[in-house]
Design a protein around this nucleic acid. Structure first.
Lengths: 229, 229
DNA sequence: GCGTGATGCAACGAAATCGTCACCCCCTCC
DNA sequence: GGAGGGGGTGACGATTTCGTTGCATCACGC
């Protein structure tokens, strides 16, 4: 999740890699042998493992298989380090399901590039933080709102208000409920602020402003389809 | 709180339910028959409908279908009241899409429990959208940030910035990346705005400000544990 | 150490945002 | 159709928030 695990039996190599990673802004932890590597992978849940194939005792292939066989580590991306020219190693590595490989000796630059590439590739999409109903799309990660694909500028308060309404489509939300959720006001407070913000929202929604319906005496409601009659 | 619509032809039952709901803090309105029920549901937009299946003229199934066919009421949760032992009624009811059912005679306690359960279920949006790392908790729904449980006021920009950093803990985000994600700036723009906001964030984070580390020449990084390398 | 470039920081003015108020309209119930 | 209450709307001032600027400070390569 946060760090990169370097597995190599040569300390010089580990230090070299760690240094370059650090310069590029990555944290790293190191393991000198396969057994330690597997343990650290399970415990520290790194974002990526850089794995040398030449290891004493438990070699890189064995480490790799072990990682893939444990649910805690089976999805971790692995960048394999192979000796130059050993083509069969490359082939075996990739066919086993490694995410990439790089040959020794390698240039630091290339290493970083590959690391970034892998992380970019495997980086999880934002955890379903997009609310989408019809033409409405609310991106909670970037606090952005799109209407029919076109971005619409909303202030933070407007965003929260719209989100509160859209979260329960078709259901009326009481004024006090909305004031609580958006402003944090306790009940019993009487204010016209809500009305004003509803108005501003409707304006920004243009023709779709009617999707926010007034429920007299209760509050407001977001409807997914504007109803006729 | 929210209004609940009670639909039953027997006045005694309606009163009984209404009384218990009231004691539990809910408001209620009542309809003695299906036609009235549909009208009231459209007009009053209740948060929940308690619907008896045995009704004169328009029976519960018909009411239910009618509700689902109208956009104003199609999303309303329905709690069905069925006669005891009529298993086929339960099956039909649930397969139609009712949110829950309860058999007559029922205990008031159980009724309230189910009502609360449904409201809880339907009020919470499907996506809880809370990012939590260590003492840090970001609530994307309410744009609120808590540090060790205590709320900390962040502006919308600060919230987005912190979110961007926290989304990939331990990994440095480049300046251009952050400017793109938070401000929507394209690259090549040179500005000190990012620095300033990082500073303001660190201030508001107090002692935890050091969790945002500077990666010289690259950008910034959020670390879950202070200092490591 | 020294110099260079990157970052930290404080202050400031501009702009956006917010909440309130007054006034009007509309709906609903007599 | 009249009264009363709730909601719509426009305007305004206060506040918050933002991005920039200038200068101090720091890290890193030499």
């Amino acid at each position: 999740m946060s760090t990169i695990l370097i597995v190599d039996d040569e300390e010089d190599i580990r230090e070299l890699i760690a240094l370059n990673l650090h310069r590029a802004g990555f944290q790293s932890i190191e393991a000198p042998d396969g057994i330690t590597a597997v343990k650290m992978a399970r415990k520290s849940a790194p974002a990526l493992i850089i794995l040398d194939l030449m290891l004493p005792q438990m070699d890189g292939y064995a480490v790799f298989k072990e990682l893939r066989n444990d649910t805690r580590t089976s999805e971790l991306p692995v960048l394999m380090l192979t000796a130059k020219g050993k083509l069969d190693e490359r082939i075996t590595g990739l066919s086993l399901g490694a995410d990439d490989y790089i040959t020794k000796p390698f240039s630091p630059k290339e290493l970083i590039l590959r690391v970034k590439a892998i992380l970019r590739r495997t980086e999880k999409g934002p955890s379903a933080s997009v609310v989408e109903i019809g033409d409405f799309r609310l991106d909670k990660n970037n606090l952005k709102f799109y209407l029919s694909g076109d971005p619409v500028d909303l202030t933070a308060t407007e965003f929260k208000l719209l989100l509160s309404l859209i979260e329960s489509p078709g259901v009326a939300r009481e004024r006090s409920e909305l004031l609580q959720k958006v402003w944090g006001y306790s009940d019993l407070i009487q204010t016209r602020t809500l009305d004003t913000h509803i108005k501003r929202l409707r304006e920004k929604l243009g023709g779709n402003g009617s999707r926010i319906e007034t429920v007299r005496g209760v509050g407001y409601r977001f409807v997914s389809t504007t109803h006729a009659s």
